[in-house]
Design a binder for these strands. Structure first.
Lengths: 166, 166
DNA sequence: AATATAATTTAGGTATACCTAAAAATCTAT
DNA sequence: ATAGATTTTTAGGTATACCTAAATTATATT
């Protein structure tokens, strides 16, 4: 698996901190299936960089900086997951892929994803083109685009060069 | 930067092999800004795993297996790049992000991306909803959806629950 | 409060992906 | 064909993200 980033750890601390005040090495160790001794090292590093307040033998809490990073990362994660699910990904796959993508995408790409989700979600009915894509993914057969829909789309398109359209 | 995968190396060998029969340590080293000595190690590893035929001092060529992986990776890369550009990413950003995504996405997600590109590309005019998204990304203002378009979309939507629509 | 149990840290180890410097092989120009 | 320049490899080093085993500290039971 990919090397874990600071964001990964901070986000995990954030999640675990909801149930208990302080997050202990064991919490992280069992969540990530690594040795508690390794988590001690991670805590020391996160502490160095001021993402957590670390006190020997008593675990960590997030600092303001850490919380900020965690929330930002979660936001990205949720948007990406929703984005993938809108496109037809299964929930589980979307979860996993979002977790990878949240660390690598350029901010401007992330912005597009956010806006994509926003725009599609403010449509209270699944847009036709999305249904069409999903059906294609599901069945392997791309449904025809009704000609009256195509014509209207063409009419409102700015880059006019009449052909078929979603 | 992310740890380079076997796919990264194999793809690069594939690209470099177009101009010259054999790919040498120096070719990879200067492409990736790493030391030629490191490339020797990489060549040995790729050779072990049968992605390349490696002969000391004379560089490598791809094996059948290596070529297969390279082509599959390139296909993913190109589809992802196009996908991102269709959504409004700049070419350079799309290139970089595609390069990261190609290694991490679940095959089923990759399939959706491929189909997305295919569906949008067979529209010979940019679909209205995509133009709308792009304008939103560019300007921060989401254009209104013309009511006659919304109505038609609603008519053809399968999950009926009338509201505004792309 | 003392002690047994559990959690945490320390110390030292492994694997890997890079590095540098020097040795070895290959290429080039005469 | 060979000397000099270039490329490649080898040998040994660094950094890091993990590990195990043993030592230390905290917690829980009586």
């Amino acid at each position: 698996m990919r090397k874990k980033t600071i964001e990964d750890y901070v986000e995990l601390v954030f999640d675990l901190q909801k149930n208990k005040k302080r997050v202990h090495t064991n919490d992280i160790a069992s969540a990530l299936n690594i040795n508690p001794a390794s988590v001690t090292e991670i805590f020391q590093k996160l502490n160095e960089a001021s993402y957590v307040n670390y006190e020997k033998y008593t675990g960590v809490t997030l600092t303001k900086k850490g919380r900020k990073v965690a929330i930002a990362t979660k936001k990205k994660h949720d948007a990406l997951k929703e984005f993938l699910m809108l496109l037809g990904c299964e929930k589980k796959t979307a979860e996993v892929d979002a977790c990878e993508m949240e660390h690598i995408l350029h901010p401007s790409t992330m912005d597009i994803v956010l806006k994509f989700v926003e725009v599609v979600k403010q449509c209270k009915v699944t847009p036709f083109w999305l249904e069409r894509l999903k059906e294609y993914v599901r069945t392997g057969e791309l449904p025809k685009c009704p000609s009256e829909l195509a014509e209207i789309c063409l009419k409102y398109s700015k880059t006019k060069n009449k052909k078929n359209i979603l």
